[in-house]
Each structure stands twice: as C-alpha cells, then as structure tokens.
Simulated scan of single mutants.
Amino acid sequence: MTPFSRITGTGSYLPPRRVTNEDLARDLAVRGIETSDQWIVERTGIRARHFAAPEVTSSDLGLQAARQALEAAGRTAGDIDLIIVATSTPDMVFPSSAAILQNKLGIAGCPVFDVQAVCSGFVYALTVADAMIRTGSARCALVIGAEVFSRILDFNDRTTCVLFGDGAGAVVLEASTEPGILASDLHADGKHVGILCVPGHVSGGDVLGTPLLHMDGQAVFKLAVRVLEESARACLQKAGKTDEDIDWLIPHQANIRIMEGTARKLKLPLDKLVVTVNEHGNTSAASIPLALDEAVRSGKVKKGDTVMLEGVGGGFTWGAVLLTM
C-alpha cells in the first residue's frame, strides 16, 4: 500500500539577538533614515525580529531547529533518509546548505538538496518530501526552512529593511498508514520576477548587479492576497474539505494585513490565525515552520487538528499545503 506522510515532530530556532523596532530606528537614524515603532507596526504588525551573528549561517540555524524536531519525533539523526532545506540565503553558492547540515548532523548517504522558492520554499519542500515518501523513495525526512535575510537587506531602504529577520524551523515527516499531508497546491509566474528579487550574482570573483533585496511592496501585496486565497481553496477542493474544516491557518509571516486579509477571504475568525510576525518579522522560508512549531509547543495546534499552511514569495511563487497533525 502506498504510504501517506505525516509530521511527527517540529522544531525551531531563533538567533539570540532580538532587535526591536526602537533598536532598528536608532540604528537607521545614524544613517539619516527616519522610522519609528509606530510606523513599522501600523504597516506590518512587526515589533521585533532576530538577527544572526556574522559568523552564523543558515545551516547553523537549521541544525538547531532540526535537533528540536528530531527530539520531538523521538528520532535520531541516523533515522533520517532525506534532508530538504528551503533557503534563499544558503551558506555557499554550492554545495547545498542541506549537504553542510547533513555533515553537522553526523550522518551520510541519504539524498540531500536545497529548494529555492523564497518565502514559499517550505511549502514547496514539504510537498516534494511528501511525494518522495509516497513513492517509497524515503520514509523519514527532515524538512527545514532556514534563513539569514539580515545579510541581504538594504539598510538605506526603510520600506524593506524593517520587514525581515533570521531564523529556522523544521519538521520530521514520516511514512504513515494514516493521512497527514492531505493535499498541496503549487504555482509560479516568472513574469513577476522584478517585484521581489536580489538581482546580483557572482562573476569572476566580483558581485555583478545588486546583492541586496529589492521589493515593490504594493505589487507584492496585491498579488499575495489573491493567490493565497486561490491556492488555499484549490487545496481544500483537492482534499474534499471546506473552509469550516480548517482548525488553524498558518500563513507565511510577511505582513499582518496580508495574513488577516487571507483569513477573512477564507471566512476564518482571526483567532484561528497563527501569528508570529510581530516577534519574528518575515523570516522567508523559515516563517511557516517557525510559526508551526510555536503553535505546537504553546498547545494551540494539537494532534488531529487540520492545518492550512500557505506561502507566497519571489519568483513569483506561491502554494499551500493542507494537513492533519
């Protein structure tokens, strides 16, 4: 019988350095850039974020989250036969952060690779891991979202540098006789590349273009609310479920207005919306597993709950996963 896949453990990690809006406003003032806690909160819902130390990489953050997820699942690193890391800020051009993390876990042999779909990365990675488990290519996977977005922020642009933070989240996804991942829905539209990108690259030892994040916030906002609703509804249809079957909505933690707008379109009360953007900022591919782990550990999300995960990011990519915990 073709197995299902089910999340058996979650984990997360935030760098120790917490940067409040007041901290950031003070640092930006030195550059002659004005902002304030009120300005940031009103537009985004963000009050703080975490920044990694200069020597800390995405795989370092992912390792801590992975260890937590393994402990929660009652597994050891030796049980893992697949590692997928969703990241837009890898440790190196190559090899993958997944390969580096595999070595840090002290294991070898199993397939490992990164997925690059920016803020949708974890949804993409979870969908790929589910497919590999269902086809028998793996039985116990680590799926991780890990980012150090502080490295690619333009601190002369207050419209973007206040939004992002660093962190990692992880899940252990295992073969199961009971359904866990109920449905997924993935999309992309490359014509929107320019509205959210880091348009630099390495050539001959030099960085060509701009190695810092660029975003057209209004364009992203308009697209995000529409495609998130469409993807969530497609997921529900594939699974034979309705809005009322959703116990918790865990969207990519980008902006509280986008998140609340999506919840309203799905006719969900806001108390079913898991929110961590206020303390984490936008941690890109890490944001969904970070929020999931916090919701599990706080007792909000319980075994048997039906959870909708959804993300939208540069590319332009978007998608959703409906699952039972």
Rank of each mutant, 00 (worst) to 15 (best):
E230A: 05
L28D: 05
G209D: 03
N156M: 05
V56E: 08
T10E: 04
V277C: 04
V30I: 12
S287E: 11
V220E: 02
V275A: 11
A146E: 09
V227C: 10
S120D: 02
E147Y: 09
A286I: 00
A131P: 07
L228I: 05
A219Q: 05
V112K: 03
S287R: 15
P179R: 15
G217I: 07
E55G: 00
V202L: 15
K238Y: 09
L186E: 02
S150T: 15
Q68R: 12
D27M: 06
L101T: 10
E22I: 00
F316P: 01
I246H: 06
L270V: 09
I33E: 10
K272P: 00
V112G: 05
L266W: 03
K191Q: 13
E178R: 05
E230C: 12
V321Y: 08
L153W: 03
G167K: 10
V312P: 00
R151N: 06
R134K: 15
P179G: 12
L228K: 07
L322D: 01
T10G: 05
T44Q: 00
V115E: 14
I144M: 14
D293G: 10
R226E: 03
L223T: 00
G106T: 15
M308T: 15
S287F: 06
R6T: 11
A29P: 11
T20V: 01
N21K: 09
T262A: 02
V93S: 01
D91F: 13
L105E: 11
D243S: 06
I46F: 08
G313D: 09
S284Q: 06
K222Y: 08
I250R: 10
E229P: 13
V307Q: 04
T127V: 08
M92L: 12
A295N: 11
I7E: 11
L163E: 10
A291V: 01
V207K: 10
Y13S: 02
A295S: 14
V275S: 09
V225M: 14
R43A: 05
C235G: 15
Q68E: 05
